[in-house]
Simulated scan of single mutants.
Amino acid sequence: MTTVPPREEPVVVGVDGSDSALDAVRWGATESVRRRLPLRLLHVCSVPSLGRDWLREAAAAAAATEPGLAVETSLQVGDPRRNLVAESAHASMLVLGWRGLGSGLQPLLGSVAQQLAAHARAPVVVARGRLSGEGPVVAGVAGLSEAALAFAFDEADLRGTAVVAVHVADDPGPTEERALALRLREWEGKFPGVDVEAVVLSGKPSAGLLEYGAAAQLIVVGTRGRGALAGLLLGSTSQALLRHSPCPVAVAHEPPAPDRPTPVCPEL
């Protein structure tokens, strides 16, 4: 069962010729098969000749990972951040590698992954650390945002695994435990086949999520707030995870209000 609004758009992977981007391609290819969606490989640059070679390499990596998967490649000239944010409006999710080439060539996906995670209009997955294997989906539970829980339960259902919902408070006690259990009850009803573990910790949220992420196959967090200012900056927890997570990290966004589309910030 899925309660995340169904999207028929492809899984989009940003490609920049780096080994990290190829990891993102492999992760995205498997996710495309899991969700029965096509895979779109996108390279945005100022040197098209290099981009064509990198896209061919990426398409070969996708085919080797998931034979028979429908793969589309796209070469665009422009600013990687602007183009990828625009592309995310027509994607089921945007998948990026954490480290770019670091050679002065554009685009360096690793250097802008945090900005894209904040501004993109679809869930963003940063492929890093351990890319496959068993383990639960760990969801960071903070504030009133339900986007992270929705994405985490959907992924756990698709993968046939459990959800570990982690809430970190300054001075946790029975009140926080009851509140988390009540909050999870609705999701347990929507996904009766997904086992759930509720965890309430004290300390820094990033430390708690990294601890439970050591045995996870995916960590899911949300952005802060709604409306026109939502996602302008990622919180310190999300930034720490994007830098240090032992497995891929997904950043899920609250859907914008119908009369208030998510903006593309001028600094992008």
Rank of each mutant, 00 (worst) to 15 (best):
L22A: 07
P256Q: 05
P107F: 05
A21R: 04
A257N: 11
A117G: 10
C265D: 06
T223M: 11
E134Y: 13
R183S: 08
A139V: 08
P38Y: 12
E155K: 13
R35E: 12
G203S: 07
H119P: 03
G231E: 06
S32R: 04
L75N: 07
R121T: 01
S236P: 01
V71P: 01
G17C: 03
V112T: 10
P261D: 09
Q217W: 07
E57A: 13
P38N: 15
P38Q: 13
L42A: 09
G97W: 02
L41I: 11
E9Y: 13
F153P: 01
A181Y: 06
A152I: 00
V194D: 06
A240G: 08
R35A: 15
D16E: 08
L229C: 11
A148V: 01
L180Q: 14
R130I: 00
P246D: 15
R7A: 12
V12M: 08
D154V: 04
A240Y: 04
G129C: 07
R56G: 10
L109K: 00
P192F: 07
P107A: 14
R36V: 03
R52C: 11
R243F: 06
V33W: 08
A120E: 09
V15N: 01
L233R: 11
P172F: 13
G189E: 12
P172G: 11
V141W: 04
H244I: 00
A60D: 12
S111K: 05
A252H: 02
D157W: 08
P10D: 10
E188C: 04
P123E: 00
T3Y: 12
T237H: 04
G97M: 07
A29M: 04
V85M: 08
V25P: 01
P256E: 06
G133H: 08
W187C: 07
S92G: 11
S206H: 13
V168F: 04
L55M: 08
A252S: 03
R7V: 09
D79S: 15
G97P: 01
E72M: 15
L109P: 00
D195E: 15
I219E: 03
P174D: 10
A61I: 03
E267P: 07
R130T: 00
L233N: 08
L101G: 05
V25T: 01
L233M: 12
R159Y: 06
R130D: 00
E177Q: 15
A58M: 07
E8K: 15
L41Q: 05
R121M: 07
L149P: 05
L158Q: 15
S111D: 03
R26D: 02
S88I: 03
R226P: 10
A152Y: 00
D157N: 14
A117I: 00
L41P: 02
E9N: 11
E146N: 14
A152N: 04
S49L: 13
G51S: 10
P38G: 15
A118G: 07
L39E: 03
A148Q: 06
V77A: 15
L50A: 13
P48N: 14
F191K: 05
